[in-house]
Design a protein around this nucleic acid. Sequence first.
DNA 1: GCCGCATTAG
Length: 706
Amino acid sequence: MPPPPGSRFFFNSLLDCTKQKDLQKGKALHAQIIRVGCSSCIYLANSLVNLYAKCGNLAKAKLVFDNISHRVVVTWNCLINGYSQQGSSGSLYAMKLFQDMRAENTMPNAHTFAGIFTAASYVTNAAVGFQAHALAIKMSSFYDVFVGSSLVNVYCKAGLVSDARKVFDRMPERNSVSWATMISGYAIQRLAVEAIHLFEFMRCEGEVLNEFVFTSILSAVTNPEFLDSGKQIHCLSVKNGLLAFVSVVNALVTMYAKCESLDDSCRMFELSSDKNAITWSAMITGYAQSGNSRKALKLFSKMHHSGLYPSDFTLVGVLNACSDVVAVEEGKQMHNLVVKLGFESQIYIMTALVDMYAKCGCMEDAQKGFSCLKEPDLVLWTSMIAGYVQNGHNEVALSLYCKMQMEGIVPNELTMSSLLKGCSSLASLDQGQQIHAHAIKYGLGSEVPVGSALSTMYAKCGCLQEGNLAFKRMPRRDAVSWNAMISGLSQNGYGMQALQLFEEMRREGTKPDHVTFVNVLSACSHMGLVEKGRTYFRMMSDEFGIVPRVEHYACLVDVLGRAGKVTEAKEFIESATIDHGLYLWRILLSACRNHRNYELGAYAGEKLLELGSPESSAYVLLSSIYTALGRAEDVERVRSVMKDRGVNKEPGCSWIELKSHVHVFVVGDEMHPHIGEIRGAIKRLSKQMKDELYESTCDFSSAVDI
DNA sequence: GCCGCATTAG
């Protein structure tokens, strides 16, 4: 039935307002409709629901909806689709409405299903999607191409990509949206090969390749392995004239950056004539994620000067760049921007902010950021826990984990690996085992980060066998896992086994990283393997393209120094092409002391004095060398420099675990609230050691007497 | 009415 003649004007006007999303004009029309008494006309009422829903005023849409006495399917669709377009915040309402509609015996149509499936795609629980799917099949709505495409999307977003493919294959009719959705489903699951196959299939079928298809397929090949495919797709997009779409250019910028082909990525960025916020974000993130954080920061200020406002995505990228280079000042400026732009409740931003402060060692600021969010999610909790662990506040991290559990948040593998790292630093076997038990309870025992952290934890606590077991049980291993076990062996005095494991790692084809070489070189130094040390140092850059860092130089200086080759070590330091500062001279100084090469020791010590070493040990070593050389004047000079610079000898610190609690204490500590218990425990331990005839190489008497 | 491009924790 057509609308009554008098309503035609209102009907068309409302349609215009909805198209233009002009809420002001729409409200005026609404008032007019009420005044002339047309508000009971179902066509106008539906149009009003649609207007408010499309303009995002769902409360008002619902109000009009509630006042309609005889709702038809279109009435429901307008409100359901309004809610589903709100994304994750509206999708539950949309699903509830769908159930109410069914309860009123109103039959859904294809529009209803398209809307309800869109809502379901935002909800991780696919149950309502399944129900609606069943009903759609029953009602044959499934044959509608819109319904089919949105259903494919439901399964893709729920991670059920093979179910999505089943729906896709059974669709009687497909359009470019269906194909793009399916390809993007593979992309989300990082199934590049499947995505490429489907894309090829699509081309064979002669489907139209539009910008949506290209953005989807490009996001599937964001891995160095698929750089060649990426380049071919790039060519195809040029052939199809799609570089005119900024979205395709953006996808290319990202593809090349993620394929570690940063030059190509920059070229795409430079070539694009109409950059939008996504283009800038893509390039900034590309820089930040490829170790070019300084460039990322520079590009951000360029974006800022161009007058474009950063989006939440941009800020996350920039904050990551700040934490990467420990740029706390720039990070604080970003924080101001976050506040200014009203992003303080955006969880991705706040997580990046917390992470930035934690990496810069500002745990108080990190804690403040954390407290800004009423409902922190698992990632934020984990970032906070990881931050405390990174900064050595391991106890705080463990108690934060208890709080997290009380909030009902279930941990994942990264939470567990951070906590285990905390237990390793505390050398607390007891707490480490508890976290291990939790990992098993939550089904995280076979996760790579957990297995690696377990090997480290057990090895640090002296339980090498358990560490090895954790390593062997891992279903797959990455570089971090191998590093954990290699370092565990090396630190427990099994240097040869550590090197053997490194050779096994090479055989298995896992690419070592810079941490691997720190472990390998330090194993060489423990074993006194000078020649092997030199070989591995060269191998690092020659075979694996890893630029040696100061810690690698330090290891080799240590290798040479321990073997008594102090002159060679000195020459090595002076030929080093990096800014090594104090670090390497200090190692040489103590090597010279141990090998009684006092002349070279004095040389190294004077270098340290020149460079203004903040550590007391350097001054103490140097003055002891001058004492041995009988140069009393120099002894006096070193002492006075030390005094002038306000360098104090730091007190030795130790810790002990009592009743699952780790107590840190220093020599001469009288202030510690548990000093009595600590002393008691040390006395018991030393008696036990004597009883078991432990040959002590150290003098424990001072520790017992604290 | 259905699809895409940029983001968080080891």
